[in-house]
Amino acid sequence: MNISHEDAQQSLAAVEQATAQVGKSIAALSAGSILILWGLIWILSFLVAQFFLAWVWYWMVLGAIGTAGTILICRKQSRTGIPVKSAASKKIGWKYFWSWTALFVYATIWLFILEPRNSIQSNAFFCTIAMFAYVIMGLWDTSRFLLWLGLGVTVCVLIGYYLVPHQYYCLWMAPTGGGALLVTGIYQRWRWR
């Protein structure tokens, strides 16, 4: 079987396109809804912090709502039948859950040890911890989008912490941090499916 140089190039381009499409599509299926949920939670939390309440309690409440929502989304996906399955996928789902739980338990321990000076420092600490997890997941994942999202939001947190006056920190983080999660989730669901 003989084909021309151009045909070979076209075939390889088609292979690359199909491979990328699968990676993106799977990422959109599994993470799109979860990112939208957490994006909304971040936006709501930062806006509440800016205009209404003191820091700690509502973050805990909204964090618990986000965790419960994430579990519900994952359970719904496994009940209705996710289009890609593997013998390992159920175990991996629980491993993700326990990894996140462990990360936040340890982050809380570090917070007590480090004794941050103010609530903005604590918040920047937790946000960068979450984004650190995104970066690690992105490094292991085929589609890499979590890596870039994690790095992007980390930059937003650092700009907010170092450059934005602290009284406007929450106002900055709501559209940039929360917005980045929300827009990425929506973009994935609409464009990558």
Partner: peptide, 26 residues
């Protein structure tokens, strides 16, 4: 090498070793 089968194989090979994909999704 047939274009559709090349696309199918590219999609399947992109998955992890033990992963299976739903016909409707594909």
């Amino acid at each position: 090498h047939q274009p559709v089968r090349l696309q199918i194989m590219s999609s399947l090979v992109a998955l992890d070793l033990d992963e299976q994909v739903d016909f409707t999704y594909l």
